[in-house]
Design a binder for these strands. Structure first.
Lengths: 249, 249
DNA sequence: ACAATAGTGTCTTTGAGACACTATTGA
DNA sequence: TCAATAGTGTCTCAAAGACACTATTGT
């Protein structure tokens, strides 16, 4: 490594090599929920330049003594009033194209979060500053700020893929839910319809996915449906393969 | 956000809020290859504190105008003489625990890379500074520097998972290879044995995985085996499920 | 009675795994 | 001839998808 003309004061820490150039690090969240029978993403309106007035993913800068996931949860609370930790939170990817922020070098660690609407009311700051946007059409026509459109796309693809082999879909559900409600969530995330009968058999036959409560509800109309809770399965056996991922015709 | 007692000179860029504290950002690589019938990871010996003399993953700090993957490839060339871009390179995850580096706040973006041994000779710097270590036992007993042991574990798990539904296994192979050579790679990464006959049927029957050349080799002994090239399939249909991931007995 | 939804049974097809069998080389 | 590996065929079982059928509610 050759030496670089950077003031020594810029070094992040005395122990590090002097030619290390610190970089601003942020976190951004793709927080998804189901609302009005639509898959929605939480967006905030930018109040400052750049991209002032445009919609963006919630996020902000990491503090010196804070872990990355911790920063994500804090920013969520600060910007949108969502105080509770989302039912599911995982690191998505890190975006570091040199010109992704016109202000300078900002690298962002994106997180994917899933929560039922009841846990993410969006009531903290003023209502105009944050909203749930249906993912179909989120950010059109001007598009989201920075590279957030791409981050949202990656988050959606991650969610679709994870639905196949994990039980994260239940993160969208209230504590007790019916099979039909879970199926609707799969349909919204994957797009298209799933056969209610085969879905029921698969989901109740997969070990650790659902725990029956013995109680029933008629809130969906028709014959009473049993209520279930999330099981403890991390991965699903067998997996729930999405019909769109079929090989040939 | 409350204001913090940080000199303004520390801010990464004039356009950013003054209370943004820049962080040192590095990249680290989990570069895997197959050597002497073993799955190996590339390690470098640290020449400076902290962890001086300990083995670590190759990596280094990101430069101001450089993309993350670009930094990973550059560090690989600088530290180990591996000049060619690995056959497969993907972002793994970002590690940012506040105390992961005793020198100060250093967040690292880890990459997973796969390459055939012929493309990664490890000849750049002196031989004592970098080596191929079998992943079984890499870093024992003192363990790898920093949190690199955990990063290596995550990288291996990612590789194992990706072998199921993608064709990345061919990234370990020379341009032309036999089904038996590919099978051996699956066995090394997953551990355990795979039935040669069923493996052959699966792998040749999966669209886009392998392209037959029409030429044959006897380098593995026995009846001549056909040589194949990588196909263009991104994802595999059907997937190659690992036997260890079985549900019950 | 009827519409609506829950849940079960049954058939077909696909693919995984076990393993017998044939094919083609070198020693 | 024999050992070794390549490659095919066949059987069984598990699971997906299609869809008929029964069950239980509200209106």
């Amino acid at each position: 490594m050759r030496s670089r003309s950077v003031p020594a004061a810029v070094a992040a820490s005395p122990g590090l090599p002097v030619d290390v150039v610190p970089i601003a690090l942020s976190v951004d969240l793709v927080l998804l929920t189901v609302r009005d029978d639509q898959l929605c993403v939480l967006l905030v309106r930018r109040g400052i330049e750049p991209f002032r007035g445009r919609w963006a993913l919630p996020g902000g800068f990491v503090r010196p003594q804070e872990d990355l996931a911790e920063a994500a949860v804090r920013e969520l609370a600060e910007e949108t009033g969502v105080r509770r930790r989302p039912a599911h939170l995982e690191q998505l990817a890190t975006y570091g194209a040199p010109a992704r922020d016109p202000r300078g070098r900002v690298v962002t660690v994106a997180f994917l979060a899933l929560a039922p609407l009841s846990q993410a009311p969006v009531a903290g700051t003023d209502a105009a500053a944050s909203r749930w946007a249906p993912v179909a059409g989120a950010g059109d026509p001007p598009g989201l700020a920075f590279d957030h459109q791409a981050i949202l796309g990656d988050g959606l693809e991650r969610a679709r893929a994870k639905f196949e082999y994990s039980a994260v879909a239940t993160a969208f559900c209230e504590p007790e839910f019916t099979v039909a409600e879970l199926r609707r969530i799969y349909e919204l995330v994957w797009g298209g319809r799933l056969d209610p009968r085969n879905f029921h058999r698969k989901v109740t036959g997969t070990a650790g996915f659902l725990v029956p409560t013995g109680r029933f509800t008629t809130r969906d109309g028709g014959r009473p449906a049993e209520l279930y809770r999330r099981g403890d399965a991390g991965v699903l056996h067998p997996a729930m393969l999405r019909p769109t991922a079929r090989p040939n015709p």
